[in-house]
Amino acid sequence: MAARSTRSPRVRRRPVNPGPTPEEARRRLSRMSQLRFNRGQVLASALTVLLGVALVAQVRSADEAGLGQLRQSELVALLDDASTRVDALQREVVELEGDREQLQGQQGDAAAAEAARQRLESYEILAGTVPVEGPGIVVFVNDPGGVVTQTMLLDGIQELRDAGAEAIQIGTTRVIASSFVGTDPDGRVSLDGNALTQPLRILAVGEPHTLSGAMAIPGGFTDSLRGAGATVEVTEQDTLLIDAVRTVGEPRYAQPVPAAEEP
């Protein structure tokens, strides 16, 4: 400022006299470093002392930078921010508490898990992915002449199922929903592509009396096989083990239809 007010006449002459050379400036700087006491210098020094104190005080208070430094509008904005945030957090708290109560309130949780486990078990048995044991019958078929036909075997399986067989094993093959009876290139009866070897052993888990009764139906499985020249022997057992299992592949084409939303 000092420069400005006294320099203004010089500024206009500047093109003629472009300020001091560096040598002059440095000479003046060194001359300035001499101590010269006069009223003006002391007064100026008093001002610079004040400036120093104010500078430090301001830096200190800016460091603290408390809310006290802020203007009213800034404080209002801060408060607004904070209360919006509080609202959002409180909403979240309510939501989460609701979730927690819902989760805790499910008394039938264990029962649901138990039901799911049982359902899984029955699906596993149906799909033939696990070995099963239980009461049932064993049917030995001795057919050295190869007289048993696809139809006869299909009838047998059908009769066993009709009688409530829960798991069936023929030879070493578990009979499942997708099982099919066919013939191999030599003309022998096969199950799911596996040729059946003689003597044929059929295991079925279910109510033994019902199953053996189903086998003994006149004109049924036993009858027709005996009539064709094979020997059939049915024994009821209190426990028998069906140990043939299947692996379930992922269906390639069939997709479940999404259940309609319950209203």
Binding site: M1, A2, A3, A25, R28, R39, G40, L43, A44
Partner: peptide, 26 residues
């Protein structure tokens, strides 16, 4: 105030520093 101080330093180098002007401008 810092502005005034820098102005004063500049004026000193140009040999036109004046205590009175500095105090008043400050």
């Amino acid at each position: 105030a810092l502005d005034a101080v820098f102005g004063a330093v500049r004026a000193s180098l140009e040999g036109i520093f004046n205590d009175r002007v500095f105090v008043i401008s400050f």
